[in-house]
């Protein structure tokens, strides 16, 4: 091109047709590749990613609500079980307490009967003992009187005297 290309190359118009030709071919090819292959594909990738992300987020929120529901159910059944267990424990406690009370009552009645029995035994023994005391006391008194006076006192008189002197219970 140098035969025409004296001067500044960008203003050398003899090269224009050639440059326009190759530019048209190259840029046409580029536009074809971009509009037919590259950009639809990139747009598709971006769209897929976006819809995938949205779907994943939806799935995650769905799962979260599911988990929340499951937790609620679990808590409810746990509370039910706790209430039930509490009820069972209470009724068992009540039952046991009733039984114990009953047993205590029978035991107490038993003890009271035994106590009364013992009381009666003690009283009878005491009465017997007291009777014996009377005998011993009159005997002793008679003996004392005999030793002091030298004569045996009347037994009935001694007993009468004892009864007079005896402390009232």
């Amino acid at each position: 091109m140098s035969e025409h290309g004296a001067g500044f190359p960008p203003f050398n118009s003899t090269t224009y047709a050639s440059q326009i030709l190759w530019l048209a071919l190259a840029f046409g090819l580029l536009y074809y590749l971009m509009s037919r292959i590259a950009l639809p594909r990139i747009a598709g990738i971006l769209h897929d990613r976006q819809s995938r992300l949205a779907a994943d987020l939806d799935e995650a929120s769905r799962m979260k609500s599911e988990a929340d529901g499951a937790r609620e159910t679990y808590e409810r059944s746990l509370k039910e079980a706790q209430d039930k267990a509490k009820g069972i424990a209470q009724s068992t406690r009540d039952q046991l307490a009733g039984e114990a009370e009953e047993r205590r009552k029978t035991l107490e009645a038993d003890l009271a009967a035994k106590l009364a029995e013992s009381d009666a035994a003690i009283r009878s023994r005491t009465a017997t003992a007291m009777g014996n005391v009377r005998e011993i006391a009159t005997d002793t008194a008679a003996a004392i009187v005999e030793r002091l006076t030298g004569q045996s006192p009347d037994r009935a008189a001694v007993e009468a005297a004892y009864d007079r002197a005896r402390p009232v219970h």
């Binding site: 047709a17 050639s18 030709l21 530019l23 190259a26 580029l30």
Partner: peptide, 22 residues
Amino acid sequence: GHQEIAFTQSALYMFAAVGVIA
């Protein structure tokens, strides 16, 4: 005419650019 039709280094770089972009 006066226009020389030639595959120049300019055309080569144009297609190289298209290749890199592709």
